[in-house]
């Protein structure tokens, strides 16, 4: 079995050393996206996507011609004013691109809805502070139930698509945070299970070659420890363990529960919304293709 996709910096030396891997290359500047994609494609690795956390609003970015054909995960702090963004909408729609916005900013929740309604795929991220859970619930309901065509808003779409009751659904992969799907490499090729761990110097291997295959990875103590961490919530009778929304959260926000007290109601509501969406779809009300 192949290893998960490797998220690595745009470091030619590192990419040359890797062979037959699927890579998600991380760049600091939007201007470097096309070059990074070319770098991977000219190696004997396969390009998953280019990840860029831009520091400017989406509306301020130059959506360059050389982004054509490059899968891009574009993180931005905010969308910017719609009047500035409007000219870019057709281009955003044409690109193979997903926009990442932090859910803890109310204007980002609005932007996610606007982008989706205009056919631009996007994703809410939960790395920062507590979102406005009521507004997020409204956005999630829009994302999953609105019968008018719109682009997917992850992680809601991912969760709804993958949730198979009674089993739980992991959704870290929507933002490269599931080590079963993505491993993170630094310039030296050291391997971590998460970007945050990589930045903190917590690595599981000095080189990806040290991990022979998927079985090797699955049984790796660090990955096992992550599973144990989840069981520990039960061991401690943590509020997450008795949350009705556990199946679509799995304690993802357990560490920030004090600052995110609305998450239980949100994820519980999400389960009901997913049920409703399935009913909707079972009545042959598949959304039609986005227009205009």
């Amino acid at each position: 079995m192949p290893l998960p996709t490797l998220v690595c910096p745009d470091a030619p030396g590192l990419i040359e050393r890797l062979h037959g891997r699927t890579l998600a290359v991380r760049v600091d500047e939007p201007e470097a996206i096309a070059g990074a994609a070319r770098g991977v494609r000219s190696s004997d690795n396969e390009l998953c996507c280019v990840i860029c956390d831009a520091l400017r609003p989406l509306a301020d970015l130059d959506l360059r011609d050389d982004w054509d054909g490059v899968p891009i995960a574009l993180g931005v702090p905010e969308a910017g004013r719609f009047r500035d963004l409007a000219p870019s909408i057709p281009r955003l729609r044409d690109l193979d691109l997903r926009v990442y916005l932090a859910a803890d900013r109310p204007d980002n929740l609005v932007a996610l809805r606007l982008l989706s309604s205009l056919g631009v795929p996007c994703c809410a991220t939960f790395a920062g502070g507590a979102p406005d859970w009521a507004a997020l619930t409204d956005l999630m309901t829009y994302a999953l139930l609105a019968s008018v065509p719109h682009a997917p808003i992850d992680p809601f779409e991912h969760i709804a698509d993958h949730y198979e009751p009674p089993f739980a659904t992991e959704w870290g992969a929507t933002c490269f945070a599931d080590p079963r799907c993505y491993l993170h490499l630094d310039e030296e090729g050291r391997v971590a299970l998460a970007r945050s761990e990589l930045l903190a110097g917590v690595v599981i291997a000095e080189d990806v070659a040290d991990i022979a295959d998927e079985a090797d990875l699955v049984s790796h103590p660090a990955l096992v420890e992550r599973a144990v961490r989840r069981l520990r919530l039960f061991e401690q009778d943590h509020p997450c363990a008795r949350c009705p929304g556990w199946r679509v959260c799995l304690g993802t926000l357990a560490d920030s529960l004090d600052t995110a007290p609305g998450c239980a109601a949100f994820f519980t509501e999400m389960l009901d919304v997913i049920d409703q969406r399935r009913d909707q779809r079972s009545r042959d009300r598949e959304p039609v293709k986005w227009r205009p």
Partner: peptide, 14 residues
């Protein structure tokens, strides 16, 4: 306060 933005949005919706 966001009249122009709304106008452009509705236009973008066809």
């Amino acid at each position: 306060p966001e009249f122009v933005d709304l106008l452009l949005y509705f236009r973008a919706r066809g």
